[in-house]
């Protein structure tokens, strides 16, 4: 069993008529950890997640998930990962129960097992009362819960969550994170998430990376990052702001040096 469940080397990606989203990302993520990927809007977080979960292709570089390289046929990798992207991905015309069961069938469950797993997730995410409503008729919070529940149906080994708690009320958010922690602790799943809520990263992440201008600007533990950049008694948010500010100042003085 590999030590790192995610290994990325030299990933680059430039969008046509757009900016360079990734400029050579190297990243290792160990098994069974809760990993926060931080960065400003446009830093390349979503692009990186889309490449890691096989939706997009990098221009260059290589990626392996659980020791298997993503190249060409990525079906075996897709069986190992669960993904909840930033925008909800639901079939508006189908009920929560049917969507969960169908998702199980797509991952090779037989009908009884898929139905059982659907019931389990409906209960875990508090969706029992709305289980037979079409997704289009669900509230925003319930859509979000169903969106995450669908990513968990097949008990993935790595869970990619892109801004997962956006649009959740505080109660749902607490329940969501409790479930992620349980999944990580009891099922050994690696939870890889991006977030703009730094308190979430601090509370629920073990390790983190900061992406800046398409590169990994920092990689380490959450506690180590706060200690190194926040100063005494500072939290992750203070550390992150100091870190980004110092990088901006560094880039500026480099430009000034070149200009001089």
């Amino acid at each position: 069993m590999p030590e790192n469940v995610i290994e990325a080397r030299g990933l680059t990606r430039t969008y046509r008529k757009g900016p360079r989203a990734l400029a050579g990302v190297d990243l290792d993520v160990p098994e069974a950890c809760r990993f926060a990927l931080l960065g400003a809007n446009g830093a390349g977080k979503s692009t990186l997640v889309r490449i890691l979960c096989t939706l997009s292709r990098q221009d260059s570089g290589r990626v392996a998930i659980a020791g298997r390289p993503i190249s060409g046929g990525s079906q075996a990798i897709r069986a190992l990962i669960g993904v909840a992207l930033q925008d909800t991905q639901l079939d508006p015309a189908e009920s929560a129960r049917r969507q969960l069961a169908f998702q199980g069938r797509l991952y090779g469950f037989d009908a009884a097992r898929a139905a059982g797993r659907a019931e389990e997730l409906l209960a875990r995410f508090g969706l029992e009362l709305v289980a037979d409503r079409k997704a289009a008729e669900l509230s925003g919070g319930n859509k979000r819960r169903l969106h995450v529940a669908l990513a968990l149906v097949h008990r993935p080994r790595v869970l990619f969550l892109d801004e997962p708690s956006v649009g959740m009320d505080p109660e749902s958010r607490a329940a969501f994170w409790a479930e992620m922690r349980r999944l990580n602790a009891e099922e050994g799943a690696c939870v890889f998430f991006t977030t703009q809520y730094l308190e979430e990263a601090e509370k629920h992440g073990d390790e983190l990376a900061v992406l800046d201008s398409g590169l990994v600007a920092y990689r380490g533990t959450v506690d180590g990052f706060a200690a190194a950049h926040a100063g005494p008694g500072g939290d992750l948010e203070a550390g992150y702001l100091n870190f980004i500010e110092s990088r901006r100042r560094g880039a500026l003085s480099e430009k000034e040096a070149v200009g001089a």
């Binding site: 979960c53 096989t54 939706l55 079906q75 075996a76 897709r78 069986a79 990962i81 993904v83 992207l85 925008d87 909800t88 991905q89 639901l90 079939d91 508006p92 998702q103 797509l106 991952y107 090779g108 669908l150």
Partner: peptide, 13 residues
């Protein structure tokens, strides 16, 4: 609806 993206993540061609 974004559901195509979800389907594209399933382990089938």
């Amino acid at each position: 609806s974004g559901y195509f993206m979800r389907l594209a993540l399933a382990p089938v061609p």
